[in-house]
Amino acid sequence: MFDHLSTYSTDYAATKEFYEGAMASLGYAMQMEFVAEWNAEFPMQRMCAFGPEGKPAFWIIEVKENYTPRHIAFSAANREAVNLFYQAAIESGGKDNGKPGLRPTYHEHYYGAFTIDPDGNNVEAVCHLPE
């Protein structure tokens, strides 16, 4: 669980498209999008946020230069949602980094799927329920 977090993108359009598809599979949608006009060095810097209704929790912020990739894990309601996330993420431009399945190394019921987004981030959906 997290309140909000951000990732940075050098290809804003591709990254936004990736998350629009992947987040929809988990029941999340874009909550806001705007240009950060206050940034004097990058006055057309775009950003958007995804999350549940009324909660912009996951931000994509456009940057000019590459950065160190991150790992992001999103909660899924059940294992089928993990499967749908993986399929949607791949169809939306993501790359495989671990097909849906149990990961007993973490714990007995850890069911996750891993993808790489257009900026190289390791993006996961996980369900901790027994079935």
Score class of each variant (00 low, 15 high):
S25Y: 03
E124G: 01
G101Y: 10
N122Q: 07
M44Y: 08
A76Q: 03
A125H: 06
A125D: 02
G94L: 01
Q87V: 11
A81V: 01
T7D: 02
Y110S: 03
C48Y: 01
E65D: 15
L129V: 12
S9R: 03
K16N: 09
A36M: 14
A89V: 05
D11L: 05
F18L: 06
A77T: 14
K16D: 05
M47F: 07
E80W: 05
A29R: 13
F74V: 04
A89E: 04
W59K: 01
E17Y: 11
T7Y: 07
M47N: 07
T68L: 11
D3C: 05
S92C: 09
E20L: 12
I61F: 04
Q31P: 00
A14K: 13
G51M: 08
G120C: 09
G27N: 05
Y28N: 13
M23G: 01
L5N: 13
G120F: 03
I116M: 10
Y8H: 13
E124L: 05
P43T: 10
D96C: 04
I72N: 06
H128W: 08
A49K: 09
T68F: 08
D96I: 09
W38D: 12
K99H: 14
Y28W: 09
E62Y: 00
G101C: 09
R46H: 12
G120D: 10
L5Y: 10
Q31K: 13
N97Q: 14
Y86Q: 03
N39M: 11
N121W: 04
C48A: 08
R103N: 05
G21M: 00
R103D: 03
H4G: 10
P118N: 03
Q31L: 04
N97I: 02
N39H: 14
A57C: 12
E17D: 14
P52W: 06
E41S: 14
P130C: 11
G27K: 06
A49F: 08
Y110K: 06
V82G: 00
F85H: 02
A81T: 01
R103E: 03
T105P: 02
A125R: 00
A40F: 09
R46S: 09
G51A: 07
S6K: 08
R103P: 00
A81K: 11
M30V: 08
H107K: 06
R79K: 14
E62C: 04
V126E: 00
D117S: 01
S75W: 09
A73Y: 07
Y106R: 06
E37A: 12
F50C: 03
D96S: 12
M47C: 07
K55E: 14
F42A: 12
G94N: 03
I116L: 14
K64F: 04
V126Q: 00
E53Y: 11
K99R: 14
I116K: 10
V35F: 00
E37T: 15
P104D: 05
H109C: 10
T105G: 11
W59L: 15
Y19K: 02
A77L: 13
H107S: 12
G112H: 00
E131I: 10
N97M: 07
R103H: 10
L129Y: 14
P130G: 04
K55C: 15
R70N: 12
S75G: 13
I60G: 01
N78S: 12
V123T: 08
Q87S: 09
T68W: 10
